[in-house]
Amino acid sequence: MRLGCQRPARHRPWLPLLGLLLAWGLCCPPGATALDKVKVRLMWVHQAQFAGFYLAQDQGLYQQAGLEVELMPANPHGHGPLEELGQGECDFAMGWLAEALIKRAQGLPLVHLAQLVQRPASLIVTFQDSGLSDPKSLDGQRVGLWQGHAAAAPRAMFRGLDIRVNEIRQGSSIAPFLSRAVDAASAMLYNEIHMLYQAGVDQEELNIFDLGKLGLAFPEDGIYAHENTWHNNPDLCRRFIQATLEGWRLAFKEPEVALAATMKRVDDSRLASNQAHQRWMLKVMSQIITERVGLEKMGELDPQGLALAGELLFKHGFLPRAIPNGAFCVPAWQKP
């Protein structure tokens, strides 16, 4: 059985290292130019949401771009990745547009290098039997919200609806929602919705509020850097973004390879996830990343999305002005 065959790699912790050494030995003959070391903070624990990064790393795309990339999963309970950019803990970080706009308005000089997720996948779910059948009914309820990057859009929605909810800090688990410790929970189309399905909850048992359809169509996953990084080494940024986008193109072309690369990291991290879930996630990612832009213009930020996010966040008081000051978007995603 395929599922049963996945042995946790912790039994052989030296194996990835050995693989890296081998790859390095093969691709970089002695005397080759030294690779630029970069640290990348992902948005979440290892999962298919980042499959393009994994393939770029595993298939040597970063190496070909002269990069030695360290992909760091996020701690769902820890600091936000964008904050780490400010603290210099990483060179590149993933973040959502709304959060990035707020952070920049708050004085963190970050620049947008590439937009991955074009269509919002943020949802809020309630159980049908709870009677919470429209967003307004969330008033006064316990609502699980991720802190940081994901909180802006729902908070904007609550303010738009003029309701107050009891925010409960949500982690990577759906157990609080399932055990009714919260009345509503944040969910991603590519993640929690399917986790609920894998916990035996049928779609018919849920009310799903799609934030995108409720007028909060904020573009989500993007890649950011400190503006100093961009100014000092735009070539490095371009090489990183191009290799990453190439990794995504490869992931959509070879989903099984992407899945294997994902599962390897899931196994290594001893995460409570499985292949069926990651396969689902990769499928959804393929849809929301290529929507509007296709494979060629992948990485482009929709100006309308940017404008909408700015306006809404300004309207609800998250931003002092609707348009970010200075050069927020830099065309690192464009092929030279």
Binding site: C5, A199, N274
Partner: peptide, 26 residues
């Protein structure tokens, strides 16, 4: 568990990671 997650299973790799429903899906 109540979520269908394996606490004990004939395959060690199922524990915590697979649920009864993820197996059904796969």
């Amino acid at each position: 568990t109540k979520q269908g997650t394996f606490l004990a299973a004939p395959e060690e790799s199922w524990v915590m990671r697979e649920t009864f429903f993820s197996l059904a899906e796969a």
